[in-house]
Simulated assay, not measured.
Amino acid sequence: MPLHRLLRLSPTAVLGLWHRTETAAALGALLPAGAPYAALLPPTAGSERQGQWLAGRVLAHAAAAALWPGAPGLLVRNDAATGRPYLEGPGVPASAVVSLSHSGEWAAALLATGGQVGVDVELVRDKARRISTKFLAADELAAAQRVGTDAYFTLLWSAKETLYKLAERRGLIFKEQLLLEPFTPASAGEIPMVLRLAEGQSRHRICYSQPAAGYVLTHCWEPGAPTATP
């Protein structure tokens, strides 16, 4: 069972990582609510996409068991309008929040009782570099080009994805509203960021690490809503 890690960020928040080696059928057998999930599985997804989708839900159940041992009826659903995952079922706190991500062989999940969560795992590729002008502001792009590696561009994309999930706002413009502040890249650390909304801006710190060679992981859990400033 390749549950790679469950990291308790606090008494009310757990970050999980799953290294996927199983087939989609094997992952489906690990879910306690197999029949409901079979109906929720994206019908047009191929075997690889199905495996990623199922791994995220198996991981969410493992993290939930650590947070809420009395919630055997947990079900992970997706909001029809936004696609964001949410939790329901007996024993699940009304304030429960969840963020899921998958890429390549890895799945990540961040669950908490209250607050805001965001998580993203990415396979390092040249894609983030190729689309960098679409998601990086001019000063961010200049700084990224000085570093120049695919891993760095992928990290910046992942950090913005995590903040986007944390914000829970549709239609945000990555290069204008999800802004990076200067930081010194390392194998693990924090990236300071600013979220700009119509009602003001707020500051956030996105944690990052390398779960395996060729991958980056970013996450953020905030127990209370940040105060926006004009």
Rank of each mutant, 00 (worst) to 15 (best):
G104S: 11
L87K: 05
G118N: 05
L100I: 03
G73E: 11
S158E: 01
A94Y: 00
S158C: 02
R170W: 10
A107H: 04
S158P: 03
V92W: 00
L100A: 03
T154Y: 00
R77Q: 08
T154G: 02
L163V: 15
S158M: 00
K127F: 10
D126S: 15
G73V: 13
L141Y: 13
A144M: 03
R125P: 09
S103N: 05
A80H: 11
E140M: 10
Y164M: 11
Q145Y: 03
A80F: 04
L110Y: 00
L123Y: 12
G104K: 08
L123H: 14
T149N: 03
A137N: 12
I131A: 00
L123K: 06
G104E: 03
A107T: 03
G115D: 01
K160L: 06
A128E: 05
L163D: 11
A159V: 12
N78H: 15
D126L: 12
A142P: 05
D79P: 07
F153D: 00
S103C: 07
L87M: 10
T154W: 06
E161W: 02
A108H: 07
G148R: 08
A144P: 04
G83Y: 04
N78R: 13
T162W: 04
T154H: 04
K134T: 10
T149P: 05
L136V: 08
G115S: 09
E122M: 01
E168N: 11
A144Y: 00
L141T: 11
Q145F: 05
G118T: 12
L141H: 15
Y164A: 12
E88V: 15
L141R: 15
T149E: 06
K134E: 07
S95M: 06
T113M: 10
Y152E: 09
R129H: 02
G115W: 05
A81M: 14
L111C: 09
T149D: 06
L163H: 11
L136N: 01
P90H: 13
L155A: 00
L155E: 02
Y164E: 13
A81F: 14
E122A: 04
P85T: 04
E168K: 13
H102P: 12
Y164H: 13
D120M: 02
Q116T: 14
A128H: 01
L100F: 01
V92E: 01
S99P: 08
P85H: 02
A112Q: 06
A151F: 06
S132F: 02
L110F: 07
K160M: 06
G91A: 13
E122H: 05
E161S: 07
A96D: 05
A109D: 02
A108L: 01
A112I: 05
A151Q: 08
R129M: 04
A107G: 09
G118A: 13
